[in-house]
Amino acid sequence: MSDSRPIHCVVLVKQVPDTHNITGEVMTKDGTMNRGALPAIFNPEDLNALEMALQIKDRHGGTVTVITMGPPKAANILRESLFRGADKVVLLTDRKFAGADTLATSYALQCAVQKLGRFDLVLCGRQAIDGDTAQVGPQTAEKLGIPQITYAESIIEIADGKVTAQRAFDSGTEIVRCQMPCLLTVVGTANTPRPASVRRRMEHKLAAAPGEYTALRAQWPEFETDAALDEYLTRHDLKIPVWTAEDVGATEGSIGLAGSPTQVHKINFVVLESTESKTISPTPEAIAAMVAELVHEYIVG
């Protein structure tokens, strides 16, 4: 029997370019990327992290707060989070964050999580599909001074201030028990994220950050001024809070490009080595000839 204390979860999510549709034009000259050139999606494993947090809330009570750091349009994945069951969302956005590597990102996230106050668990996806580094989770845990459970696949128990979880990797599994607060990075096999609830979608369809008011008012002309819209959203708890570097108390030298120890020295377009190659028609004769050649060269035994 697990204890009945409510568990407060913070989920760190990222909007990522859909890397299935990538062209060379999305990289800018300084080696960072032009995200605008690609469709943006909810990083898949972050959805698994959100689902894990929602399941913890279903079981133990508590709250689920979702934070994303990104450009203003990253508010889209915060709305998605609200539709799926998040209680509160925060958009961490500031031009000063631009160009951050994983170290500068984890520092900004640390500041935001600390501003929230009390939490038991921080969850995030194992890695984001735009970089595949899997570094921001552990780096954020280190900055927060809390232990980490990477590759978390399931929560076995939360009791007595400790979380017991199964970790999964290619070479096997591990069951660990860890004192809370701690940070978990969640793998894609952990669960099937619940779809957006129709009721919650209706309730939160107007949820917006101030940067989106102009666009929103074009859709809802009954709000004649930003102030009127702001007043309405605030009253209905639909205003997505926006936190800047200053709001979270982040030191300027530690964020964005300036706070990033890694620098891009150069970007090379890949020149494929031309190999001596043959075109084989997909006919039985041509295939047989190819196989014969491979046998002759002892490539095929």
Binding site: P17, T19, I22, T23, G24, V26, M27, G31, M33, D130, G131, P261, T262, Q263, V264, H265, K266, I267, N268, F269, V270
Partner: peptide, 13 residues
């Protein structure tokens, strides 16, 4: 290999 698949990035610290 960097984001984008067509590129190789050289990173330095």
């Amino acid at each position: 290999p960097a984001f984008g698949g067509n590129l190789i990035a050289t990173i330095v610290n």
